[in-house]
Amino acid sequence: MPVIYLLIIMTLLMIPLIYNMVKEAKSLEMTEETISLPIPILTKKLLFISDLHNRKIEMTKWWENVQVDIVIIGGDLVERRTTEDNVRHNLRILTSLGQTYFVTGNHDYRFHMDHLTAILNEFNVKQLNNKVVEIDDKWAVIGIEDYGTGHALLETIYSTKKPAILVSHNPEAVIALKDENHSLRAMLSGHTHGGQIRLGWLSLGEKGGWTEKNQLPVFISNGFGTRHLPLRFGAPPQVHIITVVGGEEK
């Protein structure tokens, strides 16, 4: 068979696959997670989203019905090519849901940071970069900057003794912890896109979901947008509702 015919056949076979990959990249999976802290607290609901890149949030009924106390953007809100209109559109929706916090991802640094900070301030988004915020004076959310870029100040993790959730874009940040004398109970991260394109065990990054790193439960989001090509396979885009509950002190 001539090579040209083989190429035509291969192309025709690829069209349905590419169509489905584009369709998956435009879809949205909403997951519900729970984090338990070892003290009595008022239950809080967090919306966690990461890796928006250039994707715009479509205002569906799901978004309209979301009821949360806190919104956390886990990095890569933007990248070099992201337009201001996109950023403002996404922030307008996210900040309407509750007090919004942001930690930087590796691609955020490629968007002019002073300009990004000005937009975040415009929407009253609190930057949780190497900072701690206490919730109801009972527990804390700790944010550190992107570990892979060298901006993370790991000592921030030790600045509170209250039970804490760590938020950092790169899940590998927790691997660098040498001292176990911290109060972390879980970590929220993104960065890997869940592999974005997964063919069995072959993928472009670590699988999303709960895992354990350095004896700490770590949640990796598949992220909301895509990088390089607007394609996904086996790693659907995600947004997460995380319920933080309390228990008896241990």
Score class of each variant (00 low, 15 high):
residue 140 A to L: 10
residue 118 A to S: 15
residue 191 H to Y: 11
residue 96 S to H: 15
residue 134 E to F: 08
residue 121 N to W: 08
residue 15 I to G: 09
residue 7 L to N: 08
residue 150 G to A: 10
residue 34 T to Y: 11
residue 57 I to N: 02
residue 191 H to E: 05
residue 150 G to E: 10
residue 66 V to D: 05
residue 179 D to M: 10
residue 212 E to P: 06
residue 114 D to W: 06
residue 74 G to K: 04
residue 66 V to C: 07
residue 207 K to W: 08
residue 171 P to M: 06
residue 94 L to C: 03
residue 75 G to S: 08
residue 51 D to L: 00
residue 77 L to H: 02
residue 87 V to F: 01
residue 229 L to W: 14
residue 247 G to I: 09
residue 242 I to C: 04
residue 98 G to W: 05
residue 237 P to T: 01
residue 7 L to Y: 12
residue 89 H to T: 07
residue 185 R to V: 15
residue 105 G to K: 04
residue 155 E to I: 05
residue 62 W to H: 13
residue 61 K to C: 08
residue 224 F to H: 05
residue 211 T to H: 12
residue 168 S to W: 06
residue 148 G to H: 02
residue 2 P to R: 12
residue 151 H to F: 13
residue 230 P to W: 09
residue 149 T to M: 03
residue 174 V to P: 04
residue 206 E to I: 10
residue 184 L to T: 03
residue 136 D to G: 09
residue 187 M to E: 12
residue 220 I to C: 00
residue 165 I to G: 03
residue 215 Q to R: 15
residue 58 E to T: 15
residue 126 K to P: 01
residue 79 E to W: 06
residue 186 A to F: 14
residue 65 N to E: 14
residue 166 L to E: 09
residue 12 L to M: 14
residue 206 E to M: 12
residue 138 K to I: 13
residue 4 I to A: 12
residue 186 A to Q: 14
residue 97 L to N: 11
residue 44 K to P: 02
residue 54 N to V: 09
residue 37 L to P: 00
residue 168 S to H: 07
residue 210 W to Q: 03
residue 32 E to F: 13
residue 205 G to V: 12
residue 188 L to C: 09
residue 124 N to W: 06
residue 247 G to H: 13
residue 228 H to S: 11
residue 34 T to V: 14
residue 191 H to W: 02
residue 160 T to D: 11
residue 201 W to F: 05
residue 185 R to W: 12
residue 73 I to Y: 00
residue 106 N to Y: 05
residue 13 L to M: 15
residue 51 D to G: 01
residue 111 F to A: 01
residue 181 N to C: 09
residue 73 I to M: 00
residue 16 P to D: 10
residue 52 L to G: 05
residue 244 V to Q: 05
residue 243 T to W: 06
residue 137 D to Q: 15
residue 154 L to Y: 03
residue 208 G to W: 01
residue 216 L to M: 10
residue 120 L to M: 11
residue 15 I to W: 08
residue 41 I to R: 03
residue 205 G to E: 08
residue 74 G to F: 02
residue 51 D to W: 00
residue 107 H to V: 05
residue 14 M to Y: 13
residue 196 Q to F: 04
residue 28 L to Y: 09
residue 4 I to Q: 12
residue 50 S to E: 04
residue 43 T to E: 15
residue 168 S to E: 08
residue 20 N to H: 13
residue 193 H to W: 01
residue 241 I to P: 01
residue 159 S to R: 13
residue 248 E to L: 15
residue 148 G to Q: 04
residue 4 I to S: 13
residue 82 T to D: 03
residue 28 L to N: 08
residue 103 V to A: 10
residue 120 L to Q: 06
residue 57 I to E: 03
residue 13 L to P: 09
residue 223 G to M: 03
residue 39 I to L: 10
residue 209 G to E: 05
residue 200 G to N: 02
residue 24 E to F: 09
residue 104 T to Y: 14
residue 12 L to E: 07
residue 232 R to T: 10
residue 147 Y to V: 05
residue 5 Y to T: 04
residue 53 H to D: 07
residue 165 I to V: 14
residue 70 I to V: 14
residue 233 F to G: 02
residue 98 G to Y: 07
residue 162 K to E: 08
residue 95 T to A: 03
residue 238 Q to W: 07
residue 69 D to F: 08
residue 226 T to C: 11
residue 16 P to K: 12
residue 47 L to G: 01
residue 184 L to G: 01
residue 69 D to E: 09
residue 196 Q to S: 02
residue 122 E to N: 07
residue 210 W to T: 02
residue 134 E to L: 13
residue 121 N to R: 12
residue 7 L to Q: 10
